[in-house]
Design a protein around this nucleic acid. Structure first.
Lengths: 110, 110
DNA sequence: GTAATCTGCAACCTAAAGGTTGCATATCAT
DNA sequence: ATGATATGCAACCTTTAGGTTGCAGATTAC
C-alpha cells in the first residue's frame, strides 16, 4: 500500500484537500528534502499531526520519505507527481469540452 | 456561503476527493443539467446521499442547481469551474518547476 | 557516558464525513 | 381529485479525519 501502486484520482484529490497538507506540498516544492522537525516548525500543528499528514500524502503517492541518521527526510515523489499532474490536466481538459458544450448550447438557444 | 465567493484550492480539491462526487462531476460534464433522481439512478447510494454530495460540490463552486417544476436540475458551474481549472494548472506548473529543480539537483550530483 | 534531539508507536478524543430512514411537501399526469 | 414523482428536512448512526499527549527507542553532540 505504499507509493508504488496506481492511485485513484479521488485519493490524490483527497490528499490535496487539506490546507495543512497543501502547505506541506508547497514547502517541499520549494526546497529539497526536509525533516519532520523542520516541517513542523513551519506548521501550526504538532509534529505527530505533521507526520500523519505526510503519511496521507505518501499513500496518495505524492511524497516519499527516507531515513537519514536520526531524522526522516521527506521529498516530493517525481513519478507519482507527474501522474497526478497528468490527471489534473485530463480533468481540466475534460472541463474545457464541457464548457465548450455549454457555450454552444446557450448560443443555440438564441 | 453559496457559489459566488472565492473558494480555496483545498476546498475544491476536497470536493473532488470522493469517488461518488467525482462520478457526479463526470456525468455532469458529459451531458446537460440533470435532476437528482436521474443522477441517483447512476449512483450506488441513496438520493439523499447524492443530494448531500451535490451540495458539497456546490459549496466548492463546482456545480449549481436550479429549480424547474418539481425537479431540481444540477449543472456544472462554468465560472468557478474555470477558476478551479486555472488553480489546477497553477499547481501543476508549480510542480513542473519543482521537478525541474529535482532533476537538476540529481544531475548536479553526478 | 550523558544529555539533547528526532522519531515512532499507541491510546485517546472530538468533530465532521458519509450514509440511511421516515415523513412532509410540492408538482405533474390522468 | 388522486396517485405517482421528485424533493426537502431532520434525526440518527457509524466510521474516519485531524489532532493531542505520553512514553520509549535511536542518534548525535559534548
Amino acid at each position: 500500500m505504499s507509493a508504488r501502486s496506481r492511485k485513484s484520482p479521488a485519493e490524490v484529490f483527497a490528499a490535496l484537500g487539506d490546507e495543512t497538507r497543501l502547505l506541506l506540498v508547497a514547502r517541499l516544492s520549494g526546497s529539497g528534502p526536509m525533516s519532520i522537525a523542520r516541517l513542523t516548525a513551519g506548521a501550526s500543528v504538532t509534529r505527530q499531526a505533521v507526520t500523519k499528514h505526510l503519511h496521507v500524502l505518501a499513500k496518495a503517492g505524492l511524497v516519499r520519505g527516507m531515513r537519514q541518521g536520526r531524522e526522516q527526510l521527506w521529498e516530493l515523489d517525481p513519478r507519482q507527481l507527474q501522474e497526478a499532474r497528468r490527471n489534473l490536466e485530463l480533468i481540466s481538459r475534460h472541463w474545457d469540452s464541457a464548457l465548450d458544450r455549454l457555450r454552444a448550447a446557450v448560443e443555440g438557444q438564441d
